[in-house]
Design a protein around this nucleic acid. Structure first.
Lengths: 133, 133
DNA sequence: GTTACTGCAAAGCTTTTGCATCCCT
DNA sequence: AGGGATGCAAAAGCTTTGCAGTAAC
């Protein structure tokens, strides 16, 4: 088997800024959110750089992307097993760490190899409930 | 309280064709998929008509939309409670009806009103497993 | 010196919208 | 007849890509 040399991962200031912005961030920001925040520090920051870096971090397993918001991709630096609640009105996303063991009966799997799962709870957040009266 | 007259829902041939295409369809098609299929019957069919109708049906609760595929919206005519497995390679989606009762402890909810939930299993389908050897 | 990253602009996709025309009820 | 739906084209988002210049290693 041919030894695949791993591509080096350079520590550029922009990349570090994106990582810093994401670190411990529980708001599940979109690429736009991240771009706006990092742009303050690097006014020349390009959108492509944000997307390229998010993609690179995803591939390395540093972050996860969430498909829960149909309007845009959301990113989560917390790669440990957890789930989410999304507000159907304002699209706010919060973490949930209910620990359920989910097993699919063999006959339901249709020979899929299951790698993992993610539970999306949807509802309305307190802020949107207030307004909706 | 003012009586809101319900908007009439006309039975146009195009709309019926879209409904027909969706009825019992377990492939979780995208708008493009539906468009291509219905276009065979109605060569003048417009993309806007497909989207308008899917949106209208969603509002009426006739169909659900799935955010599980990050590349595009997918539609599901099965509105009863069920979950999904998606193939991370080819994005094939199949139904799963594991019946789990998911309750979030009060302190995790952060005062959200929970309306429902959806479990996404992800993995690789038998077809993609074969190729990947 | 290499290799990868940045920034810019343009392109690519999916989805939405405006509007004139058409047609279901 | 009238309200809604259709079809077309254009626009609007989000995301990706090509490429020349630049910076990390």
């Amino acid at each position: 088997m041919i030894q695949q040399k791993e591509k080096s991962f350079k520590q550029t200031p922009q990349r570090l800024a994106i990582l810093e912005c994401l670190k411990g961030n529980k708001s599940h920001p979109s690429a736009e959110d991240i771009f706006q925040k990092v742009k303050k520090k690097f006014p020349t920051m390009s959108f492509a750089t944000v997307y390229n870096n998010l993609e690179a971090m995803k591939k390395r397993g540093t972050i996860h992307s969430l498909t829960i918001d149909s309007e845009r991709m959301r990113y989560d630096p917390n790669t440990s097993c957890h789930h989410h609640i999304i507000c159907v009105d304002c699209k706010k996303i919060i973490d949930v760490s209910v620990n359920v063991k989910l097993n699919i009966p063999e006959e339901e799997k249709c020979d899929f190899d299951i790698l993992g799962n993610h539970i999306e709870f949807y509802g309305t957040c307190p802020d949107c409930n207030k307004e909706g009266q």
